[in-house]
Simulated assay, not measured.
Amino acid sequence: MAISVSQIEILRGKLEEMPEVENPDRKISNLEAIRMMASSIRDLQSRGYSIEKIAEILRESGLEIAPTTLKSYLTKVKGSPGKSNSRSSGKPRRPSSSTSREVKKKASEKPAASVATKPTASSKNSAGVTPVPPGSFTPKEDSDEI
């Protein structure tokens, strides 16, 4: 059954007016739990508690978390008051394949003086290909063609 655009606008308005559901017993992830307690955990750290000791306190209280995971979550939560985007983890992005190709090419280039490319007069073969002296092979740049 089709629905009109005006009906969708009315429905969207109703959805946006709905109050937030308060459910203190709902289950949340460890990351969300750390996000909610981050300021208290940082306060404990400033009072001299180690990450290991804080993780132990949390485990004793029912939140199963390793010290390394706790440290990682605190780093993720550091600058984000709301939900964080899992893709924006602070890790540098991998360069595109064209960029990495250029870097590899520049790194593998030899100075022009070290390669002898002077062909001899009798170096042409029947196929029209000029042979290259041993040790002077240079690969051609990749192309986007298949």
Results as ranks from 00 to 15, higher is better:
87 R>N: 13
24 P>D: 02
17 E>G: 06
69 T>Y: 03
20 E>Y: 03
9 E>G: 03
109 E>T: 07
130 T>D: 02
120 T>Y: 02
17 E>T: 05
83 K>C: 03
115 V>L: 15
81 P>H: 00
67 P>F: 01
76 K>V: 02
145 E>D: 13
82 G>F: 04
143 S>A: 06
144 D>K: 07
87 R>W: 02
95 P>D: 08
111 P>K: 09
7 Q>A: 15
21 V>I: 15
42 R>H: 13
4 S>W: 03
86 S>G: 12
95 P>V: 10
73 Y>Q: 14
7 Q>W: 00
39 S>F: 03
144 D>P: 00
68 T>Q: 13
113 A>G: 04
145 E>H: 07
6 S>Y: 03
110 K>T: 08
139 P>L: 10
128 G>T: 12
110 K>F: 01
103 V>I: 14
94 R>V: 08
49 Y>G: 01
109 E>G: 00
134 P>Y: 05
10 I>K: 13
78 K>G: 05
22 E>L: 10
140 K>C: 06
46 S>L: 12
62 G>A: 06
22 E>C: 02
53 K>R: 15
124 K>W: 14
6 S>E: 15
81 P>G: 00
125 N>E: 13
7 Q>C: 04
97 S>A: 12
127 A>W: 07
55 A>C: 09
132 V>S: 04
104 K>I: 05
65 I>T: 07
115 V>H: 08
10 I>A: 13
26 R>N: 02
114 S>R: 05
119 P>S: 11
124 K>M: 15
122 S>T: 13
135 G>V: 04
113 A>N: 08
130 T>A: 01
8 I>L: 15
129 V>F: 05
133 P>H: 01
11 L>R: 10
3 I>S: 08
110 K>S: 10
85 N>Q: 06
88 S>C: 07
92 P>H: 07
144 D>T: 08
129 V>L: 14
122 S>Q: 11
99 T>R: 12
39 S>D: 15
10 I>Q: 15
46 S>W: 01
108 S>M: 12
43 D>N: 12
84 S>L: 13
30 N>L: 03
63 L>H: 00
49 Y>H: 14
17 E>C: 05
130 T>I: 14
25 D>N: 11
101 R>G: 05
85 N>M: 07
129 V>E: 11
135 G>Q: 07
1 M>K: 09
21 V>L: 15
146 I>L: 14
29 S>P: 04
67 P>T: 02
101 R>Q: 13
92 P>K: 10
15 L>E: 06
133 P>F: 00
88 S>N: 14
44 L>W: 00
46 S>M: 11
11 L>I: 04
88 S>V: 04
57 I>R: 10
94 R>L: 13
55 A>D: 06
111 P>M: 08
90 G>C: 10
134 P>R: 11
135 G>P: 09
101 R>W: 09
85 N>P: 00
109 E>F: 00
102 E>L: 09
62 G>R: 07
82 G>P: 01
62 G>H: 06
10 I>H: 04
107 A>D: 05
4 S>M: 09
35 R>E: 02
